[in-house]
Every structure is written in C-alpha cells, then in structure tokens.
Design a binder for these strands. Sequence first.
DNA 1: AAGTCTTTTTGATGTACGTCAAAGATAGCA
DNA 2: TGCTATCTTTGACGTACATCAAAAAGACTT
Lengths: 239, 239
Amino acid sequence: MKAETFKVACSSCNLRELCMPVGFDQNDMHKLDEVVTTRKKIKQGDLLFENGETFTSLYAIRTGFFKTSVASEDGREQVTGFQMAGEIIGLDGIVNDHHTCNAVALEDAEVCVMPFDHIEDLSREFPVLQKHVHKIMSREIVRENGMMMLLGNMSAEERLANFLVNLIQRLFARGQSQSEFILRMSREEIGSYLGLKLETVSRTFSKYSEEGIIEVKQRHIKILKPDALKQLVKSPNCN
Amino acid sequence: MKAETFKVACSSCNLRELCMPVGFDQNDMHKLDEVVTTRKKIKQGDLLFENGETFTSLYAIRTGFFKTSVASEDGREQVTGFQMAGEIIGLDGIVNDHHTCNAVALEDAEVCVMPFDHIEDLSREFPVLQKHVHKIMSREIVRENGMMMLLGNMSAEERLANFLVNLIQRLFARGQSQSEFILRMSREEIGSYLGLKLETVSRTFSKYSEEGIIEVKQRHIKILKPDALKQLVKSPNCN
DNA sequence: AAGTCTTTTTGATGTACGTCAAAGATAGCA
DNA sequence: TGCTATCTTTGACGTACATCAAAAAGACTT
C-alpha cells in the first residue's frame, strides 16, 4: 500500500512533550518544526523500514504501535522492542547508514519523518536539541541493558511481570488507563521479545490470572493487583 | 587507590583510528585534542564508575580491559559488555546524568577522560565529531540488539561461539593474534554476559576442545578451527 | 450464518541447562 | 616452597521451560 505524506508542525503537536525537548522559547520552537519534513501513514502489518534498507531518517510515532525485530541468518526472529506514540525509532540505522532491524506497524499508524541530516544540522544550532538527541540514544542503551538483565537472569514470571509493568507505565505517561488495555501484539511476539515461547507466555498469563493478579481474555488485559505485579519485578525497570 | 591524572593529546595517539573520527585536517585535529582533558589509571579490580554516580564524562580506553554490568534489586549481576582499547564507555550515563551500570577494570588500565560538555561543545563546531558521537551510540544500540538475539534465541554453544568470534575480530582490529589469546574475564563473568552459568561455560569450552575446535588451558585459548567456530554463529554478529 | 483460518489455551512429555558437590589446577603469599 | 584462596573442571541429578499435540475461542470471508 502506498503511504500518504503531508506537512505538519511540531509546535502545535500534542505529543510535543514526549518526543521533543522541553524549555525553549516560541522562536526556537518554530525553527525546530524543520526537524519534521513530512508525516507518513503505515497500515497494520506494513514495514516502516527493514533490515538492509538505506537509513535516512528517524521516525517519531504519532499514532499507532510498532514492533522492531532482528533476524538471524537461519531466520529466527528476535523482537527488540515495542514502540508507541511519542517514541523515536530508527536509531539502529545511524552507525552504518542502513537499518539493521525491521519496524512493523502492529496497528494502523502515523509517523513524523525526521531526516537525520536535518536533525544533525539543527542540533549544531540548538544545544537543547543536541542534548535531547543524545539522551534519546542513551535511553535506548539503558533500556537494552535492562533487557539483557531480563533475558539473562530472570524467570518467565519475572519477565512477563516486567513487561506488563513497563507497558502500564508507558500507558500512564500517555494518559491512558493503566488498569485495562488491549495488547497490540500476539503471544508469540511477546514471547520473542521476552526470550520465551508463546505457550510459556500463555501459561504465565494463566498463572497470574489464577492468582487473581490480572484478568486475561485473549488480548484484553485487566490489572487487578498492580502491586503484586510490581512485587514480581525485582530488577531495574526496562523502559 | 588514588588514580594518577595527566594531560595528553589525541593527535599523537596511536589508537586515534579506533576511537576518533577519520578524515579531517591537522588544524581540526589539534582542536579535537580538547575533547580529552586528562588520563586516568585504574588498577585491576577498581571501578571506573559505578551505578548511581554522577555522569560527567565518557572514557576512551587507552590500555586495559573493562567489564560493565548492571545489578538487580536483589543483587543479581548481569554483565552488559567487555570493552578493550579504543572503545568508549559511559554512554549509559547521558540520559539521567548519572550512571546506571558499573565499569570495572579487569586488568590495570588507562583511560582518556572526555568531559561530555566538551564533547557536546566541540560537536557543534565539528560536524565530523558530531557524526562520530552519533555513530558510537548507534553502534552500541546495534550491538545490544545482537545481544538480545543471542540471549533470547541462541543455545549455549551458539552463544559461546558468538562470544569467541567477536573477541577474535576485535583482537584482529587491534593487530593482536587471532589464534591465541588470554581471556581477561572469569568463567562466571562470561556466563553472566551470555546468560549462562559458569559450569555451562566450562562444559561448552570442554566440548569445543574435544571437537578439536579450540585448545583451552584455563584462560589461555588457542583457536584451532576458526571456520568451525564461525559455522556455529548463525546470527548477526554482536560487536 | 456457516465455514475456514488464526490465535490462544491446556495437557503430556522431553531436554538443555541449572544446581549441588567434589576434585584438580593455578595464583598469590608467607 | 609449601599453604591458602580462588578459579576451573567434571559428574550426578533436578527443573524450568521447550516441544508436540489437540481442543477451544475468536476473527475473517462469503
């Protein structure tokens, strides 16, 4: 499907606080509008970018939900992250000028296209933007450190609790319900992300359910005992 | 132990090609000397920085060998990386102005201290440095993506092969022997990095040894069949 | 509204790696 | 040069999660 593209301004975007630096004046703000050249709509199931593709831009998610994944030579897939509104994807492409992972929309989505050349040019002009870019990249490094802890040291129960608590926090930051939500990804995708098989994910959901911690109906999740869930998370949180 | 500190210049450093951007003239080079303010010696076993410590600088390793690790609330340790000469550590500290991991010297080491403020100031002046900083951070993100694949999808044998092949490549890039080397870290530290127990690491070394792929005598490793090892690595290499 | 496809759940069984334990090997130190 | 302390190897056994399989629940199509 062909993606629509059109112009838009950050200065009037309600997600500004999530993906743009805070604390600079009106003038600077309008200059920063240049970071985003266009928007792009992505249909559910479609790729935003894929492994091997030439890197040109970072993408700020306006609406929708993505997963990123890497693949091994023999075809095994590892989901490396799930991204939602206000988050930035594409950082993997900077180092070698081409992407090393795939980004797939898990629901119809819209992203702001930010050509990386523009970002670098504007970064030199606006220290606040420069700092922001550095922090976004560092945050991703710290998140992945947390994922290494999760994948290397934690039990299935701890992994899934961690996953849910993290999701809840991010929904909270976006003003959505923390107690009830719909998972945008399959059991298999959750499993891939957490280094588990889909059956184990399903069984662990069932276990939480039996313990009255959550209510599960397919992809519909209701959090009954958020504290019990947080109790299960015994490691630095993976944002 | 008190660490010695003294001044030094990048422009005359033989590791320049590893940790500094390439392709700019003599004048720029001398300006870039400002990135490094001092050097610092770290004794084996000592911390370069630790979790919670205020972030001020990135460090370029001049000599020696480091491990970085994160810890969970209940004290489990996850090694997140091993770093050698020419590599940059401390990127985790940027996002929250304090470090979230520990960096320990596995042998006596010397690092170049690069205050991050200087880096940011000079980055605005020299696009080539700016790009370099971005690439270093992106490279770390891509490396960690690879580690997620390793930890989430690979068998003990594949993990260790991956680890060894990666080590060999980095030794090669430094002009050291690829066929014979001494491990700077314990079986337990390798295990922590690879999401395995030390016994499993030891057993896997023994297995390779029985198969004639490597020769193991404690920490002394001799690679007999590098191709057999590469054969075992069925996924994007984790640099 | 029936029929097909996909996803999720649940059960039975298998296995790769973990755990526990003890014996070498090496390094550091008096 | 022997004595500790630490690290590594190896064996026996246990277990958390994977695998295989089939039923149940939705979702999509016509």
